[in-house]
């Protein structure tokens, strides 16, 4: 079937193709990670760059390594501020994911059921917000949510509320902003999964006596799990480290890792501690992701 390729040339090219993603990961993930880890193990110093020790060259490698320690990680465990901000971030990102799923699933489902000629337009509508700057869209939410802003005016105008809701600078405002910003990342993978769903499976279920609701619960939902997982990962991962939205829409008591990180880097100029915060965040994210990957690997048999 395949045209014969000289063996050495074939495997050489194969190796090169296989190597590209690994080289990419090495250059843009592993190398920066090692640098950040090395800073996290150092101490803060009034210096340029602001940590010690500096790398003295390979001759004094042993001395350099012995100066590194886990003190910053210990501090993260001791100070409740840090683990509270992690928990708060997990909570807000988790809630964001759940709400985005609750809104995104019906949206994606309706799009997948829409006539083919409409689907392209609907898809563009989902992506359309990306054509405006993210920052401007978050600022727009300030205008909507602030006391006597657009939302209050509308609600009081039709008589639903009698006084301003005071949503701005609360966790609720952060959730609204996050769900709004990340919704497309939930809708797109869900749509692509639901669109691929074989319609005859739904007909078969109904033929065998399943009501539309049962058909959804026993066929559509289980077969869209890969889309749910992909969409949730795409929302949860950026949401947990989000800085701009809690900073602009959240209150002084909105605690999120992104803000803590920013404060350590720019206000306290404590790069080592900020690096430690980042590394712990990575571990917090990587573990559930690995579990997710395993779940998908097992689910693969179901989706062809």
């Amino acid at each position: 079937m395949s045209t014969p390729v000289p063996r050495s040339g074939g495997t050489g090219r194969g190796l090169l193709v296989a190597a590209i993603p690994y080289l990419w990961l090495l250059a843009f993930f592993l190398a920066p990670f090692v640098i950040v880890l090395r800073i996290a193990l150092s101490d803060a110093a009034t210096d340029q760059p602001p940590y010690a020790p500096h790398f003295p060259g390979f001759g004094q490698l042993g001395e350099f390594l012995s100066a590194l320690d886990l003190e910053n990680f210990r501090l993260l465990g001791d100070d409740p501020l840090y683990w509270q901000s992690y928990l708060s971030s997990l909570r807000i990102a988790g809630l964001t994911t759940l709400i985005a799923l609750a809104i995104g699933y019906p949206l994606a489902h309706a799009m997948a059921l829409a006539p083919k000629r409409w689907q392209g337009i609907l898809l563009v509508l989902v992506i359309l917000p990306f054509w405006t700057s993210f920052l401007i869209r978050v600022y727009a939410w300030i205008g909507i949510l602030r006391p006597d802003g657009l939302l209050d005016m509308a609600l009081m105008g039709i008589g639903l509320t009698s006084e301003p809701l005071r949503l701005l600078n609360t966790d609720a405002a952060v959730l609204i902003g996050m769900v709004y910003s990340y919704l497309p990342f939930m809708v797109l993978p869900l749509f692509s999964t639901l669109q691929k769903l074989d319609g005859t499976l739904l007909e078969a279920a109904s033929d065998l006596g399943a009501t539309p609701l049962t058909t959804f619960l026993t066929v559509t939902l289980p077969l869209s799990i890969p889309g749910i997982l992909a969409g949730s990962a795409l929302v949860f991962i950026p949401a947990i480290g989000e800085f701009v939205i809690p900073d602009l829409l959240g209150g002084s008591d909105t605690l999120m890792v992104g803000k803590v990180l920013w404060n350590e880097f720019f206000s306290n100029r404590d790069w080592p501690l900020a690096s430690a915060v980042a590394i712990v965040l990575l571990v917090v994210l990587v573990l559930p992701l690995m579990l997710l990957q395993r779940a998908r690997g097992q689910g693969e048999g179901g989706v062809r």
Binding site: D198, T200, L201, E203, A204, A205, S206, D207, L208, G209, A210, T211, T218, V219, P222, L223, G301, G302, V303, R304
Partner: peptide, 17 residues
């Protein structure tokens, strides 16, 4: 779903999961 008629589909339409 309320007809006492069943169908065997050309593609079989077996539930893959």
């Amino acid at each position: 779903h309320r007809r006492p008629v069943n169908m065997m589909f050309q593609s079989y339409a077996l539930f893959p999961h």
